[in-house]
Design a protein around this nucleic acid. Structure first.
Lengths: 111, 111
DNA sequence: GAAACATTTGCATGTTTGCGCAAATGCACT
DNA sequence: AGTGCATTTGCGCAAACATGCAAATGTTTC
Protein backbone atom coordinates (compact mmCIF):
# COMPACT_ATOMS: atom_id res chain seq x y z
CA UNK A 1 0.00 0.00 0.00
CA UNK A 2 1.01 3.52 -0.72
CA UNK A 3 4.25 2.26 -2.14
CA UNK A 4 3.32 4.21 -5.23
CA UNK A 5 3.19 7.44 -3.31
CA UNK A 6 6.02 9.55 -4.60
CA UNK A 7 8.51 9.67 -1.78
CA UNK A 8 11.98 10.16 -3.15
CA UNK A 9 13.57 10.58 0.28
CA UNK A 10 12.53 7.13 1.39
CA UNK A 11 13.73 5.62 -1.83
CA UNK A 12 17.06 7.34 -1.52
CA UNK A 13 17.42 5.90 1.94
CA UNK A 14 16.49 2.42 0.85
CA UNK A 15 18.98 2.60 -1.98
CA UNK A 16 21.71 3.85 0.28
CA UNK A 17 20.99 0.85 2.49
CA UNK A 18 21.18 -1.63 -0.34
CA UNK A 19 24.15 -0.25 -2.23
CA UNK A 20 27.05 -1.27 -0.05
CA UNK A 21 30.24 0.57 -0.93
CA UNK A 22 32.22 -1.81 1.25
CA UNK A 23 31.09 -4.74 -0.87
CA UNK A 24 31.96 -2.89 -4.05
CA UNK A 25 35.30 -2.01 -2.57
CA UNK A 26 35.97 -5.65 -1.91
CA UNK A 27 35.17 -6.47 -5.51
CA UNK A 28 36.90 -3.55 -7.20
CA UNK A 29 40.33 -5.15 -7.36
CA UNK A 30 41.30 -7.30 -10.37
CA UNK A 31 43.13 -9.81 -8.22
CA UNK A 32 40.13 -10.25 -5.97
CA UNK A 33 37.84 -10.68 -8.97
CA UNK A 34 40.26 -13.31 -10.17
CA UNK A 35 39.96 -15.07 -6.84
CA UNK A 36 36.18 -14.87 -6.91
CA UNK A 37 36.06 -16.23 -10.46
CA UNK A 38 38.37 -19.08 -9.52
CA UNK A 39 36.29 -19.96 -6.50
CA UNK A 40 33.09 -19.79 -8.51
CA UNK A 41 34.49 -22.19 -11.06
CA UNK A 42 35.41 -24.81 -8.47
CA UNK A 43 32.98 -26.91 -6.53
CA UNK A 44 35.51 -27.61 -3.76
CA UNK A 45 36.93 -25.09 -1.34
CA UNK A 46 40.37 -23.81 -2.19
CA UNK A 47 43.40 -23.18 -0.04
CA UNK A 48 45.45 -20.00 -0.11
CA UNK A 49 48.13 -21.95 -1.93
CA UNK A 50 45.66 -23.05 -4.60
CA UNK A 51 44.37 -19.54 -5.08
CA UNK A 52 47.86 -18.12 -5.32
CA UNK A 53 48.23 -19.80 -8.71
CA UNK A 54 45.40 -17.88 -10.33
CA UNK A 55 46.67 -14.43 -9.43
CA UNK A 56 50.27 -13.63 -10.12
CA UNK A 57 51.22 -12.26 -6.73
CA UNK A 58 52.82 -13.51 -3.55
CA UNK A 59 50.71 -15.73 -1.32
CA UNK A 60 50.89 -13.19 1.48
CA UNK A 61 49.06 -10.79 -0.77
CA UNK A 62 46.50 -13.44 -1.62
CA UNK A 63 45.96 -14.02 2.08
CA UNK A 64 45.33 -10.32 2.56
CA UNK A 65 42.90 -10.19 -0.35
CA UNK A 66 41.04 -13.15 1.09
CA UNK A 67 40.75 -11.37 4.39
CA UNK A 68 39.12 -8.41 2.65
CA UNK A 69 36.72 -10.71 0.82
CA UNK A 70 35.92 -12.51 4.04
CA UNK A 71 35.17 -9.30 5.91
CA UNK A 72 32.91 -8.16 3.09
CA UNK A 73 30.98 -11.42 3.34
CA UNK A 74 31.98 -12.61 -0.10
CA UNK A 75 33.74 -15.81 0.93
CA UNK A 76 33.57 -18.39 3.67
CA UNK A 77 36.71 -19.38 5.50
CA UNK A 78 36.98 -22.75 7.21
CA UNK A 79 40.04 -23.89 9.03
CA UNK A 80 41.10 -27.42 8.26
CA UNK A 81 44.24 -28.37 10.08
CA UNK A 82 47.01 -26.07 9.02
CA UNK A 83 45.30 -25.00 5.88
CA UNK A 84 42.47 -22.60 5.29
CA UNK A 85 39.62 -23.54 3.01
CA UNK A 86 37.97 -20.70 1.19
CA UNK A 87 34.71 -20.93 -0.68
CA UNK A 88 32.47 -18.44 -2.40
CA UNK A 89 29.21 -17.35 -0.79
CA UNK A 90 27.55 -17.68 -4.15
CA UNK A 91 23.96 -17.49 -3.01
CA UNK A 92 24.40 -14.52 -0.73
CA UNK A 93 26.42 -12.59 -3.26
CA UNK A 94 23.90 -13.23 -6.03
CA UNK A 95 21.06 -12.29 -3.73
CA UNK A 96 22.75 -9.08 -2.71
CA UNK A 97 23.31 -8.12 -6.32
CA UNK A 98 19.70 -8.91 -7.13
CA UNK A 99 18.50 -6.84 -4.20
CA UNK A 100 20.53 -3.90 -5.43
CA UNK A 101 19.08 -4.19 -8.90
CA UNK A 102 15.57 -4.43 -7.50
CA UNK A 103 16.09 -1.42 -5.27
CA UNK A 104 17.21 0.57 -8.29
CA UNK A 105 14.20 -0.41 -10.34
CA UNK A 106 11.94 0.23 -7.36
CA UNK A 107 13.31 3.74 -7.07
CA UNK A 108 12.75 4.36 -10.75
CA UNK A 109 9.12 3.35 -10.39
CA UNK A 110 8.55 5.64 -7.43
CA UNK A 111 10.39 8.67 -8.68
CA UNK B 1 23.13 -27.65 -25.47
CA UNK B 2 25.90 -29.09 -23.36
CA UNK B 3 25.63 -26.17 -21.01
CA UNK B 4 25.45 -28.76 -18.28
CA UNK B 5 28.79 -30.23 -19.27
CA UNK B 6 31.16 -29.51 -16.40
CA UNK B 7 33.58 -26.94 -17.71
CA UNK B 8 34.93 -24.82 -14.91
CA UNK B 9 37.40 -23.01 -17.13
CA UNK B 10 34.69 -21.63 -19.34
CA UNK B 11 32.67 -20.57 -16.35
CA UNK B 12 35.63 -18.80 -14.85
CA UNK B 13 36.07 -16.91 -18.10
CA UNK B 14 32.41 -15.97 -18.31
CA UNK B 15 32.46 -14.75 -14.75
CA UNK B 16 35.59 -12.73 -15.32
CA UNK B 17 33.77 -11.14 -18.25
CA UNK B 18 30.70 -10.28 -16.24
CA UNK B 19 32.32 -9.11 -13.03
CA UNK B 20 33.66 -5.73 -13.99
CA UNK B 21 36.16 -4.38 -11.47
CA UNK B 22 35.95 -0.98 -13.13
CA UNK B 23 32.24 -0.80 -12.39
CA UNK B 24 32.82 -1.89 -8.81
CA UNK B 25 35.56 0.67 -8.56
CA UNK B 26 33.13 3.34 -9.67
CA UNK B 27 30.64 2.28 -7.02
CA UNK B 28 33.02 1.66 -4.14
CA UNK B 29 33.09 5.22 -2.88
CA UNK B 30 30.50 6.49 -0.36
CA UNK B 31 30.19 9.86 -2.07
CA UNK B 32 29.52 8.23 -5.41
CA UNK B 33 26.92 5.95 -3.85
CA UNK B 34 25.36 9.04 -2.38
CA UNK B 35 25.24 10.58 -5.85
CA UNK B 36 23.73 7.44 -7.33
CA UNK B 37 21.09 7.26 -4.61
CA UNK B 38 20.22 10.90 -5.12
CA UNK B 39 19.90 10.46 -8.86
CA UNK B 40 17.80 7.34 -8.39
CA UNK B 41 15.42 9.21 -6.13
CA UNK B 42 14.81 12.01 -8.61
CA UNK B 43 12.92 11.69 -11.83
CA UNK B 44 14.64 14.73 -13.34
CA UNK B 45 18.26 15.05 -14.29
CA UNK B 46 20.43 16.85 -11.80
CA UNK B 47 23.15 19.41 -12.25
CA UNK B 48 26.54 19.28 -10.61
CA UNK B 49 25.38 22.05 -8.34
CA UNK B 50 22.31 20.10 -7.29
CA UNK B 51 24.34 17.00 -6.59
CA UNK B 52 26.88 18.93 -4.57
CA UNK B 53 24.26 19.37 -1.85
CA UNK B 54 23.87 15.68 -1.17
CA UNK B 55 27.53 14.98 -0.59
CA UNK B 56 29.43 17.25 1.70
CA UNK B 57 32.38 18.04 -0.52
CA UNK B 58 33.45 20.74 -2.93
CA UNK B 59 31.70 20.79 -6.30
CA UNK B 60 34.99 20.17 -8.07
CA UNK B 61 35.15 16.85 -6.30
CA UNK B 62 31.57 16.09 -7.27
CA UNK B 63 32.45 16.84 -10.87
CA UNK B 64 35.32 14.39 -10.68
CA UNK B 65 33.13 11.72 -9.12
CA UNK B 66 30.58 12.22 -11.88
CA UNK B 67 33.29 11.77 -14.47
CA UNK B 68 34.18 8.43 -12.94
CA UNK B 69 30.54 7.36 -12.88
CA UNK B 70 30.13 8.50 -16.48
CA UNK B 71 33.16 6.56 -17.68
CA UNK B 72 31.90 3.47 -15.90
CA UNK B 73 28.58 3.79 -17.70
CA UNK B 74 26.61 4.44 -14.53
CA UNK B 75 25.24 7.86 -15.44
CA UNK B 76 24.26 9.81 -18.52
CA UNK B 77 25.62 13.29 -19.04
CA UNK B 78 23.76 15.76 -21.21
CA UNK B 79 24.97 19.24 -21.80
CA UNK B 80 22.30 21.88 -21.51
CA UNK B 81 23.69 25.33 -22.04
CA UNK B 82 26.29 25.99 -19.45
CA UNK B 83 25.07 23.34 -17.09
CA UNK B 84 25.49 19.61 -17.20
CA UNK B 85 22.52 17.34 -16.61
CA UNK B 86 23.29 14.01 -15.04
CA UNK B 87 20.90 11.10 -14.84
CA UNK B 88 21.20 7.53 -13.68
CA UNK B 89 21.33 4.71 -16.20
CA UNK B 90 18.95 2.78 -14.04
CA UNK B 91 18.04 0.04 -16.49
CA UNK B 92 21.57 -0.70 -17.60
CA UNK B 93 22.91 -0.75 -14.09
CA UNK B 94 20.16 -3.03 -12.86
CA UNK B 95 20.67 -5.31 -15.85
CA UNK B 96 24.39 -5.46 -15.27
CA UNK B 97 23.89 -6.38 -11.64
CA UNK B 98 21.39 -9.03 -12.61
CA UNK B 99 23.75 -10.44 -15.20
CA UNK B 100 26.47 -10.73 -12.59
CA UNK B 101 24.16 -12.54 -10.21
CA UNK B 102 23.05 -14.89 -12.97
CA UNK B 103 26.62 -15.61 -14.01
CA UNK B 104 27.44 -16.51 -10.42
CA UNK B 105 24.49 -18.87 -10.11
CA UNK B 106 25.29 -20.32 -13.52
CA UNK B 107 28.80 -21.10 -12.38
CA UNK B 108 27.53 -22.75 -9.25
CA UNK B 109 25.30 -25.01 -11.32
CA UNK B 110 28.12 -26.04 -13.63
CA UNK B 111 30.84 -26.52 -11.06
C1' DG C 1 60.96 -31.62 21.00
C1' DA C 2 62.37 -30.58 16.15
C1' DA C 3 61.65 -29.99 11.38
C1' DA C 4 58.42 -29.10 7.62
C1' DC C 5 54.48 -26.84 6.00
C1' DA C 6 50.33 -23.34 5.41
C1' DT C 7 48.91 -19.14 6.61
C1' DT C 8 48.99 -14.66 8.71
C1' DT C 9 51.17 -10.37 10.12
C1' DG C 10 54.80 -6.49 10.52
C1' DC C 11 57.36 -3.47 7.87
C1' DA C 12 58.99 -0.62 4.03
C1' DT C 13 57.95 1.11 -0.49
C1' DG C 14 55.78 2.78 -4.60
C1' DT C 15 51.19 3.82 -6.41
C1' DT C 16 46.58 5.36 -6.35
C1' DT C 17 42.87 8.04 -4.54
C1' DG C 18 40.07 11.79 -2.66
C1' DC C 19 40.18 16.41 -1.44
C1' DG C 20 40.33 21.71 -1.46
C1' DC C 21 41.80 25.59 -3.70
C1' DA C 22 42.67 28.32 -7.59
C1' DA C 23 42.88 28.88 -12.48
C1' DA C 24 40.85 27.72 -16.92
C1' DT C 25 37.07 26.64 -20.00
C1' DG C 26 32.52 27.14 -21.85
C1' DC C 27 28.22 29.37 -22.28
C1' DA C 28 24.53 33.05 -21.69
C1' DC C 29 23.15 37.61 -21.49
C1' DT C 30 23.56 42.56 -22.12
C1' DA D 1 33.65 42.87 -25.84
C1' DG D 2 32.64 42.14 -21.04
C1' DT D 3 30.56 40.29 -16.94
C1' DG D 4 28.65 36.41 -14.40
C1' DC D 5 27.54 31.64 -13.70
C1' DA D 6 28.35 26.30 -14.15
C1' DT D 7 31.61 23.08 -14.78
C1' DT D 8 36.08 21.15 -15.52
C1' DT D 9 41.03 20.78 -14.82
C1' DG D 10 45.85 21.53 -12.75
C1' DC D 11 48.29 21.22 -8.59
C1' DG D 12 49.77 19.83 -4.09
C1' DC D 13 48.97 17.06 -0.13
C1' DA D 14 47.53 13.54 3.04
C1' DA D 15 45.43 9.08 3.56
C1' DA D 16 44.57 4.55 1.78
C1' DC D 17 46.08 0.63 -0.90
C1' DA D 18 48.71 -3.25 -3.09
C1' DT D 19 52.87 -5.63 -2.95
C1' DG D 20 57.22 -8.32 -1.65
C1' DC D 21 60.06 -9.88 1.82
C1' DA D 22 60.91 -11.56 6.25
C1' DA D 23 59.41 -12.90 10.76
C1' DA D 24 55.72 -14.90 13.58
C1' DT D 25 51.89 -18.13 14.44
C1' DG D 26 49.71 -22.41 14.32
C1' DT D 27 49.62 -27.39 12.84
C1' DT D 28 51.13 -31.88 11.33
C1' DT D 29 54.53 -35.50 11.35
C1' DC D 30 58.49 -37.81 12.83
Amino acid sequence: MSSSKSFPGKCQQSLADHMRPDLFKALCDPVRISIVATLAAQAESQTVGDLTECCGIDFSGVSRHLKILREAGVVNADKNGREMLYSLKTEELAETLHAMADALIGCRDIA
